[in-house]
Design a protein around this nucleic acid. Structure first.
Lengths: 218, 218
DNA sequence: ATAAACCTGACAGCAACCTGAACAGTCACT
DNA sequence: AGTGACTGTTCAGGTTGCTGTCAGGTTTAT
């Protein structure tokens, strides 16, 4: 997933970033609301980890703006304020979940996985797609019973397609899921990964929509 | 296991720390609630040993906060207050066990082992994994009937993998289980232990997930 | 027919990983 | 104190497998 982290404590921010990145997500980390909202205008995130007390304002303001712009990105609030009123305000403002500091990084992972599952309607974390069985949580994929080993980049592409199965996923969207801001790629990387995926999980599952992108059929 | 010890009596704290460490666990020892809860934000513990009367507050406050943050880490309370009311309050607040001071270090070990068993769903302390039979309580492992002797560090790695069998265990997670905060290791220790484990219990049981960590298959 | 878009095999570079070996420290036993 | 077995850590050299790029072929739209 592509994750936006807004946290001004450098120690905690670094720890979170490293932890999430090691689980295969692309993380953009900002320490202020203004930097974060600037990045929001140009990038499509799957999840925002939002601290509330920030040097240039209160995180709930950003959340309110996000929701009033009809952006349904998942948001987990990270805050030291464990008063009930703040939790309620956060959830009312449209947060999906909250974590009270201090929290355990493993707990954060669990919440992220829960969010991730919610993105795939059924909620189990298991998917069946034709002859494919996919365990998203443990990154295991069986093609007609035979295990297929996907690299982390291949998983990222597959995940992105699964999230919008039966819908068209633009090539640029896939590219954004692969690379965080900065590292730009000039060649036909996405095509190459689609090709590699097809070789591993079967040709028929991914359809090409010429000029636009790809679609994964149920 | 990675264990957080909160105890302000230096003599007792040092003794506990040394005793547990000699059994292969990584121990972080703090003498105040605030230091302990700071460490909780960045580290994944398997167990907390919690004294109640501390210089900056009462241990139950920390425990309450931990549980209200939905953190399910195991907690053993260490306290000189042997009144029934305190035990009940501790267990109500979400402690897993308690020990009344003065206690025997062997008794502590026994409680830790009990906690450890509880972490492997089945509760028997015995595991079978392909041609491996593993007795967690007595640290005996049979590879196709032939006993394999594992060092304590090797056990720590194996244990960590078994706790999450069929899931991916990040290399950093294994490292955290081996080393307490501060004593950082720069070289490829985890890889070396994985290599030694494979040599002792068979190559096939531990799978490498490149760029992330390892996975133990059932 | 033509150009644009796409597919895919090949490849070099590189980071991650594996593993044998060396070495100091510890422990039990003499 | 000496000895030998064992452990934890580090290092170096070899291996593996991922990644991005490209070239040349194939498909599709107009």
């Amino acid at each position: 997933m592509r994750i936006l982290l807004v946290e001004d404590e450098k120690g905690l921010g670094g720890a979170i970033r490293e932890h999430i990145a090691s689980e295969g997500h692309a993380v953009d980390w900002f320490e202020t609301l203004s930097d974060a909202s600037a990045s929001l205008t140009t990038t499509n995130y799957d999840l925002i980890l939002l601290d509330l007390l920030l040097p240039d304002g209160h995180g709930l303001d950003l959340l309110t703006r996000i929701r009033s712009a009809k952006n349904s990105v998942a948001v987990i609030i990270l805050t030291a304020l464990d008063q009930i009123s703040d939790r309620i305000r956060g959830l009312n403002a449209g947060a999906d979940d909250y974590l009270v500091k201090p929290f355990d990084l493993g707990e954060l992972s669990a919440r992220i996985i829960a969010i991730q599952r919610r993105l795939y309607a059924d909620g189990t974390g298991m998917l069946t797609l034709g002859s494919l069985s996919i365990d998203l949580t443990n990154k295991i994929i069986l093609n007609d019973g035979a295990p297929a080993n996907l690299s982390s980049r291949e998983w990222a592409v597959l995940e992105r397609l699964l999230r919008h199965k039966n819908s068209i996923v633009a090539k640029s969207v896939i590219e954004d899921a692969l690379y965080e801001y900065g590292a730009e790629v000039e060649s036909n990387t996405v095509e190459v990964y689609i090709s590699r995926l097809r070789k591993k999980i079967g040709k028929t599952s991914i359809e090409t929509i010429r000029g636009i992108g790809y679609r994964m059929k149920v």
